[in-house]
């Protein structure tokens, strides 16, 4: 028996919004420690890694490890039927080929349930080594989204250069070039507005705009985003989901031809 109950179904809506452009379907691996998802996009250039800890749920029970393959567009359709304030309960039997989503209004005046067929997905898992990154940047997630959107107008790729002084986002194309520099802040009062840089050595890497812009669909999940970079290693874009876990995106850097 698997059962997970979360007071805020809005969180699930936001997670689905953040990943459904990159992934058509994905396997949710459920265990005692929580729900995990790891999947690459169709072109195998980026990877989504989601972790929702069992202790972040209001109720969590997982008697046996369970892998639930789900079509994310269909899952999003179901979550559209829930109000943001509804409590969601996800249920499945041990060997089930269906999953049930139950939505309960706060005062129990409305209870709805939706059953969805599970899929058998043959997904490739990648081993992601622990990395000591040369640069770890924390900045407002909205600012990162804004920069990616703005620069996408001018080029297909964004170069992210990180030094002790700050981070520079640059692109160029037929129109010309665009550069945005973000300095480290000393704003200790408003943590969500701060920019912090932990740097071992400066790094400069180039990434496809299209993917960075997809990742920023996760912006409503967290006020801050963390970018981790090292030379010749995929970028990690991480959104912390308060009290529940994290959503990470990995993106292979472009290389000189």
């Amino acid at each position: 028996m698997f059962e997970a109950r979360l007071t805020a179904s809005a969180t699930f809506k936001k997670i689905l919004d953040a990943i459904k452009d990159l992934l058509n379907e994905a396997s949710f691996d459920c265990s005692e420690s929580g729900i995990q998802l790891q999947a690459m996009d169709n072109s195998h250039v980026s990877l989504v890694s989601l972790m929702l800890r069992s202790d972040g749920f209001d109720k969590y029970r997982c008697d046996r490890n369970l892998t639930m393959g789900m079509n994310l567009a269909n899952m999003a359709k179901i979550f559209k039927c829930a109000n943001n304030e509804d409590t969601v309960t996800i249920k499945a039997q041990d060997d089930a080929d269906i999953v049930t989503f139950m939505f309960e209004a706060k005062k129990q005046e409305k209870i709805s349930d939706y059953e969805m067929k599970l899929m058998n997905l043959d997904q490739e898992h990648l081993g992601i080594p622990e990395t000591d990154f040369s640069c770890v940047i924390r900045m407002p997630s909205g600012e990162f989204a804004r920069i990616c959107k703005d620069l996408a107008q001018f080029g297909e790729s964004i170069m992210i250069s990180c030094t002790k002084e700050g981070v520079k986002f640059s692109t160029g194309g037929d129109i010309g070039t665009a550069n945005v520099k973000i300095a480290q802040t000393n704003n200790f009062e408003k943590e969500e507005e701060s920019v912090t840089i932990e740097m071992q050595e400066p790094v400069s890497l180039t990434f496809a705009c299209q993917y960075l812009n997809s990742f920023t669909k996760a912006t409503p999940l967290a006020s801050q985003v963390q970018l981790s970079m090292s030379d010749n290693v995929p970028l990690v874009v991480e959104y912390q989901i308060p009290d529940l876990g994290h959503l990470r995106f990995y993106l292979a850097p472009k290389i000189e031809e």
Partner: peptide, 14 residues
């Protein structure tokens, strides 16, 4: 602007 490798150039399948 640059070649786009896949993630398999960096991570191994498990």
């Amino acid at each position: 602007s640059g070649k786009q490798p896949t993630l398999m150039s960096f991570f191994k399948k498990t």
